[in-house]
Design a protein around this nucleic acid. Structure first.
Length: 927
DNA sequence: TGGGGATTT
């Protein structure tokens, strides 16, 4: 049984070909597409030689499939698990339907038994049975357990693949993996042809990966009728999955959990003044109640975050419950402290946990749950272009999930620190991540996979079109797509890098600016979870330990310092000593290892891309030793006379590019490296910048305001201009989390395609010998350059010429070798003398007339003294002569003429230029 | 003036 594509092939009269086509349905799924292609080619145009080769390949593929079928171990279900009772039904449904939805609570055995039921249903022969898990740890441990149950070594008939660890063999019938791995495989094999069956486990978690996969699989199911898909979920919300796949059958399997009694404990039920719902005091009051009834049962308390855990920890510790340990549990906790939670001792335990205990970790021996009903939730706000991390009420589904955490060892009791009305007013389900995220990554992946229009993709729930548009806009900002929303070469590169697109963009720029080595380190750091630990009882020590690596100008240089120290420690120390080193420096050993592994993975990818790590090995060594020099102080570089030359060369609206990085160990080399590194960072997040105001707050792009996060090494001396890798709205306060001092010029260079430039105050400069103007440069409302002199010629040649005629030639305010200029001034002086003698104003022609005199007599592109001289030198004598004034050109016809024709207000004092027309008329020159 | 939790070619 294999994929049978409805084809319009001329079904071929040739019986040999017809037979071959039938055989194709029994080949390995991995080979099917390629073999079918060859068969189609031959059915259009016969070729005996090729036909024989195809026949042989088909036979080989069929044999491989037979061998897989023969290798199947005997299948025994674990009869103690609830799912086993439904085994026959499930096998039948898998045979009869392409998609089956299995709903089962914890303890139903679905994760471990379903792959075996698939084997029993004849799956795993044409291709593997692929089983996805949301977490790596689960993928590995479930694989181990199933391998054990099937009596095969892990990595043989049952394998697993997670990032950095691939233990799957040719023989593997069942492959466990993270959903991220399966999603990544679509890139290299859009048909997912290695599999004949896919099990998407824990679909109710609705991560980005799961939602994307479910959309992808919906389409793939139509193209691969032979592919079987099983979606498992908690009992909630199975209808949505079934409906998504066109009415797939749903099997409900009971869990093996014990009943949990619900007790509502809103604050108003316990009249105590000033007690906040869900506060430490509130928790203590309920814990008192539990302790009174049963002083021995372990308690799991759900809180929104570390801060709340710390407060509760302090309060509960002071109350000195008998034989009780109070212990925190959150993801950033050190491995040792986490282990304590999983190795319960004789004392009763009260575990204060974040959401990490809701899905990721299972705390053993829990009899009571106290649910504050809140969680910190990350949401991307398209309106403010910010990530927000706010405390929100959890959904009913999440509350029930929390409740279930105390029914695993015996009947439990769940205390909810809110009332039933509150509960029923809540959302039934947690918003899927897809509806809470920026979509740049999702869209880039869709473009790379050529999945067509985003709004036609069969997501379970379609994202808001505004958020989709915002995702496209973000891709445009980093030049990943063009105006037609097609991937640019940069975009194609980004799609090959297994990290966030904006971080990947930094790598691309790092390559260009010859700072790959540094960017690999920084970008891999930004991709992992923060390895720095800050245990509640040693926060100052931890801060001090981390400060040893900090750099006062840049948190990213701090990251490089940490990397170097860790790298050295890794080279010199044994595994266990390295572990000590990490704990001494308050670093998570696991996450540091993750950093190193990701660094290595990225290194391999960029080598595949053919990128060089460094310019040369000599530069490499020097760069490693080079200390980072801070950026030069902003004085002078962008304002005043010195800057002019720099800017004047920069007339095509591309900001000046740096000379290739000289990476020597000299101070300037280090300064250059600092610049290259930070400009590469800016390329990935060009709008994450800000300028300090009088109050020390930062004004960013799109009128966004933020503060330097106090944990940043820059917090003590915040620079004027800052780049921030993450701007996060935490409960209404907006923090720039990881920061670096940058130069506005670097921002201008890296965000050149996003700038808005306006030109004002065009005027003649005698000193420069050309027409200049002041330009203002801004990035989404953030003014990068207030007033910078630029030559005006390229902006508006005609206007520059007009200004030149009036302010340089008519007024004679020019140093020129052309003799007519001085001659004309002599004529003018003479005329002024006549005017004075006659004691009459208005004898001299109006300036406009004098300007008109020159119009058309010299080329329109001339607007500088240099250009004038060059032209004049080569001009014919007649052309030269035409530029000379006579007294008649300067004086109004006769002294008797009506002076009213020349209103005094418009008369010009030609020797002392005043504020001019051009200055009163700002020129909007948006580029 | 203080960061829910996962994941990847």
């Amino acid at each position: 049984m294999n994929d049978t594509h409805p084809t319009a092939d001329n079904a071929t009269a040739d019986p040999g070909l017809r037979e071959l086509r039938r055989q194709l349905d029994t080949v390995s799924s991995r080979d099917f597409g390629r073999l079918l292609g060859r068969w189609r080619g031959l059915s259009r145009r016969a070729d005996e030689g090729k036909l024989a080769a195809l026949r042989a390949d088909i036979e080989r593929s069929v044999a491989r499939r037979r061998a897989r079928a023969a290798a199947k171990p005997p299948i025994r279900l674990d009869e103690s698990l609830p799912i086993s009772a439904r085994g026959e039904d499930i096998v039948r449904l898998i045979r009869e339907h392409q998609v089956v939805v299995i709903a089962g609570e914890t303890g139903s055995g679905k994760t471990t038994q379903l792959p075996k039921l698939c084997l029993a249903a004849g799956r795993g022969e044409a291709g593997m049975i692929g089983c996805t898990q949301p977490r790596r740890l689960a993928a590995r441990s479930v694989a181990r357990r199933v391998a054990e149950e099937l009596g095969t070594p892990l990595g043989d008939l049952v394998g697993f693949q997670v990032r950095f660890n691939d233990q799957v063999s040719e023989r593997s019938l069942v492959k466990f993996m993270t959903d991220g791995i399966l999603l990544a495989e679509t890139q290299g094999d859009p048909w997912l042809s290695a599999y004949d069956t896919l099990i998407i486990d824990e679909a109710h978690e609705r991560s980005l990966n799961i939602d994307f996969l479910l959309g992808y699989l919906k389409r793939l199911a139509l193209k691969r009728p032979g592919l079987k898909i099983i979606v498992t979920s908690a009992t909630i919300d199975t209808a949505r999955f079934a409906e998504h796949f066109g009415g797939a059958p749903v099997v409900e399997v009971e869990g093996r959990a014990y009943p949990v009694e619900l007790r509502w404990r809103p604050v108003d039920a316990r009249p105590r003044d000033g007690m906040q719902q869900g506060s430490a005091e509130h928790i203590a009051a309920v814990l008192d109640e539990i302790s009174h009834d049963d002083p021995r049962g372990d308690v799991l308390v759900f809180l929104p975050g570390e801060r709340e855990i710390r407060d509760a920890h302090q309060l509960l510790s002071r109350r000195q419950y008998r034989e009780t340990e109070i212990m925190p549990l959150y993801a950033r906790l050190s491995a040792g402290d986490q282990d304590r939670v999983f190795k319960p001792g004789v004392k009763r335990r009260v575990v204060l946990a974040t959401n990490v205990a809701e899905t990721s970790l299972t705390v053993p021996r829990i009899r009571y749950v106290i649910d504050t009903g809140t969680a910190r939730v990350k949401r991307y706000s398209q309106r403010s272009q910010l990530e927000r991390l706010h405390v929100e009420p959890i959904s009913q589904a999440a509350a029930d999930q929390r409740k279930g955490r105390c029914g695993r060892v015996g009947p439990g009791v769940c205390y909810r620190l809110y009332d039933e009305a509150d509960f029923s007013g809540r959302a039934a389900f947690t918003d899927p991540e897809l509806l809470r995220s920026s979509l740049a990554n999702v869209i880039l992946r869709m473009l790379a996979l050529k999945l067509g229009e985003v709004d036609e993709f069969p997501f379970l729930e379609a994202p808001d079109p505004r958020v989709v548009a915002d995702g496209f806009r973000r891709l445009t900002e980093i030049s990943a797509i063009d105006d037609a929303r097609k991937l640019t070469p940069i975009g194609h590169t980004l799609a090959r890098l297994p990290i966030d697109v904006q971080l990947a963009r930094m790598l691309v720029e790092g390559e260009k600016l010859q700072a790959m080595r540094e960017l690999l380190t920084i970008v891999s750091f930004l991709s992992i979870q923060d390895p720095r630990e800050r245990p509640g009882d040693a926060r100052q020590q931890a801060d001090a330990a981390h400060a040893a690596f900090a750099d006062p100008k840049s948190d990213f240089v701090g990251v490089l310092n940490l990397w170097r120290a860790y790298h050295d420690a890794h080279e010199e120390l044994t595994q266990s000593k390295l572990r000590d080193w990490c704990s001494r420096h308050f670093l998570s050993f696991m996450r540091m290892r993750e950093w190193r592994e990701l660094h290595r993975q990225l290194l391999l990818v960029v080598q595949e891309l053919g990128w060089k790590l460094d310019v040369s090995s000599a530069a490499q060594n020097e760069a490693q030793n080079a200390r980072f020099a801070p950026p030069p102080a902003s004085r002078g570089r962008l304002g005043g006379g010195e800057a002019f030359c720099d800017v004047a060369q920069n007339q095509k609206r591309t900001p000046p590019q740096p000379s290739p990085a000289s990476r020597g160990g000299s101070e300037s080399g280090a300064g250059q490296l600092y610049e290259s590194v930070h400009r590469a960072l800016l390329a990935g997040l060009p709008t994450q910048v800000g300028r300090k105001d009088e109050k020390g707050a930062y004004l960013g792009t799109r009128e966004r305001k933020f503060q330097m996060f106090p944990g940043s090494a820059l917090a003590k001396a915040p620079p004027n201009w800052v780049f921030s890798a993450q701007i996060l709205d935490v409960g209404g306060r907006v923090w720039g989390m990881m920061n670096a001092r940058v130069e506005p010029l670097w921002i201008e260079q890296q965000a050149a395609h996003l700038l808005r430039t306006s030109c004002r105050d065009a005027h003649w400069s005698k000193k420069r010998g050309c027409v200049v103007a002041y330009e203002q440069v801004s990035l989404f409302g953030l003014v990068l350059v207030e007033k910078r002199p630029v030559t005006f010629q390229q902006q508006d040649p005609a206007l520059a010429h007009a200004i030149f005629l009036r302010e340089a030639l008519v007024r004679g305010d020019i140093e020129s070798r052309a003799d007519f200029v001085r001659a004309n001034q002599r004529v003018l002086e003479e005329a002024l003398g006549i005017e004075a003698k006659q004691r009459r104003e208005g004898l001299i022609r109006h300036e406009d007339d004098l300007v008109s005199f020159f119009e058309g007599k010299l080329p329109g592109e001339i607007a500088s003294s240099r250009a004038l001289d060059a032209w004049y030198r080569k001009a014919r004598p007649a052309e030269q002569a035409a530029l000379r004034w006579s007294l008649d050109d300067v004086l109004v016809g006769g002294a008797a003429l009506d002076a009213k024709a020349f209103p005094a207000a418009l008369d010009m004092d030609v020797r002392v230029p005043r504020a001019q027309d051009a200055q009163e008329r700002p020129l909007d020159m948006d580029v």
